[in-house]
Design a protein around this nucleic acid. Structure first.
Length: 311
DNA sequence: CTCGCACCTCA
DNA sequence: GAGGTGCGA
């Protein structure tokens, strides 16, 4: 296995920031301090390490450089996005980019992405990680030990389609478990992973319309799948955090309380109206900053939160 | 259309 | 009480 190098300054990619920002749930550090993760169900493994403006990558199951360039949307320059937003008079966004340099959208495997976000409702990132890991251990292909870490591929959707509710009981999915089997069966019916991936060439509206048919998939999850795996850069997932941001930012959102379907469109559409075809990327900056601002990252990632000492 | 609530754990 | 969805009122 060879190591490829991709020139990517930290203003274009901050590996740790991106991998832990709640888009993706399987990355971990190996015994050499590199980031490593299985990608999707086909046995692909990607390893990455960033050093003085260069991204070093290795892969099993393909050419590392190609896999990584796709996975990190290397063709999309944050600097150009920033310029575009600057000239569109979206100054606040240029500032948001400067406050979280190197944050970008990843391009995940659609099946893995769908089932990851199916586990995401009312769950912090560390819990989603546990669920995804559990599904992979239980139903995914054993990929062996790599640089000190045991890896499993994400389960084939056909495998998930055969799963019983009781099989998932041990994984801590909670009520989220009830959707997995039904969702997988619908995807298989439509043509499996090939069908999901084919939505990449559909329009955003078409893709979303298809996704929300899947049991357990509402607008939020559909938008996550669109943005994080189907190349729909204009998809803006709205959760309670982004709704709060929208209320602060846009007049037409100020008095919209709960996230009803109509309200969802108001929130989401406001970002699109203001930030255009890459509104989803804009959303990621505001989302990141909002979690930061509220000091929620430690909680999300399950890091030990130091208890305030008594005086 | 909007509201309220259950859904399973875990923190 | 939770970064959501689906149900009935």
């Amino acid at each position: 296995m060879t190591t490829d190098a991709i020139v990517m300054p930290t203003t274009e990619l901050d590996l740790e920031k991106v991998l832990l920002s709640g888009q993706t749930f399987r990355w971990q550090r190996d015994d050499q301090g590199w980031w490593i993760s299985p990608i999707g169900s086909d046995g692909t493994i990607l390893r990455a390490q960033q050093e003085s403006g260069v991204l070093y990558v290795e892969a099993c199951g393909g050419r590392a450089k190609d896999i990584a360039a796709l996975y990190f949307h290397a063709g999309t320059s944050l600097l150009s996005l920033r310029d575009r937003w600057l000239s569109d008079d979206a100054l606040e966004l240029a500032v948001a980019i400067d406050n979280s340099p190197g944050l970008r959208i990843v391009r995940q495997d659609p099946v893995e992405c769908l089932f990851s976000f199916l586990c995401s409702s009312a769950a912090p990132i560390h819990r989603i990680r546990r669920c995804v890991d559990g599904m992979s251990r239980l139903l995914g292909r054993d990929l062996g030990v790599h640089h000190g870490v045991q890896l499993w591929a994400f389960p084939e959707v056909e495998r998930l389609a055969g799963v019983l509710r009781a099989d998932l009981d041990s994984l801590g999915l909670g009520f989220r478990g009830r959707y997995i089997g039904d969702a997988a069966r619908m995807v298989v019916e439509r043509g499996g992973s090939h069908w999901l991936a084919s939505l990449r060439s559909a329009t955003y509206e078409e893709a979303k319309l298809e996704l929300v048919q899947i049991p357990g998939v509402g607008e939020k999850v559909a938008d996550c799948v669109c943005l994080f795996s189907l190349d729909k850069h204009q998809a803006v997932p709205i959760d309670v955090h982004m709704a709060r941001v929208a209320r602060r930012k846009f007049d037409e959102c100020r008095d919209v309380k709960s996230i009803t379907p109509k309200a969802y469109e108001t929130f989401s559409g406001s970002f699109r109206a203001r930030f255009g075809e890459f509104a989803g990327w804009a959303q990621q900056y505001f989302f990141y900053a909002e979690i930061e601002r509220r000091g929620l990252w430690d909680q999300e990632l399950g890091r030990h939160r130091p208890k305030p000492l008594s005086p």
